[in-house]
Amino acid sequence: MTATEPLSGSPAPAAPGRTLNLTLRVWRQAGPDAPGAFEDYDAPGISVDMSFLEMLDVVNERLVEQSREPITFDHDCREGICGTCSLMINGRPHGPQRGTATCQLHMRKFADGDTIVIEPWRAEAFPVVRDLAVDRGAFDRIVEAGGYITVNSGSAPDANLIPIPKSVADAAFDAAACIGCGACVAACPNGAAQLFTSAKLAHLNLLPQGQAERYKRTEAMVDTMEELFGSCTNHGECEAACPKEIPIDFIALLNKDYLRAKLKNRRYLSRKP
């Protein structure tokens, strides 16, 4: 495996047109209840300018040529924003490049002769659907429990009615940048979803518009999260794996708001902000 390089650094540029000969060790599993196993595939002649998923496209094309079933993996926008792609690459969610989703990882980050181990997200709350694709519906359940600000279409006041300090809007944005890919859960030894949940909570709880439902939201989302996912024991692996580099500071906010939610008498909330 190559060294991990931060994006802002200056990695030694790979010569354009260079190709790699790789071995892929890929998790294959025919269905949710079928047993799974690793299979090895030779992947010669992979251009360093390919993205990781384009490399898999090429491998799949070759498999189809040989009448072997292609590898199933989730992907869509290939711009690092939709959160559909996943993949444990050499034991790390989204692979070796920090702050980068699998679809934006390029083969220049690997070396000739590498063996790359590719697995699905491993977490109890994300059952394998097939091969490398998993079901992340548990994230949707958390949002459905309270990850919103209730406002009927057409009933909103003028957008500039409530000024929001830029620093607050920026902090809310940092949290809202979460793409819901599930890397945080996959990275966590406990399969906990604290980083995902805290990001959504921080996004909404920091904004003035989100105050009315703040404690109800916090309690509902955290309780749903606890039902579906493991518990947080402060490993911090989630932050390191997050392709959007969402900080674990938000987990502190989650804990604080959850505690307050349990203590507050919500009928009298407006007396003490």
Partner: peptide, 22 residues
């Protein structure tokens, strides 16, 4: 115009100026 109002109320973190306006 209603779209911007609606989205701001939903908590869409639009870019803001230092005075807090959009």
């Amino acid at each position: 115009n209603s779209i911007i109002d609606q989205c701001a109320a939903q908590g869409v973190p639009f870019a803001r100026e230092y005075g807090g306006l959009l």
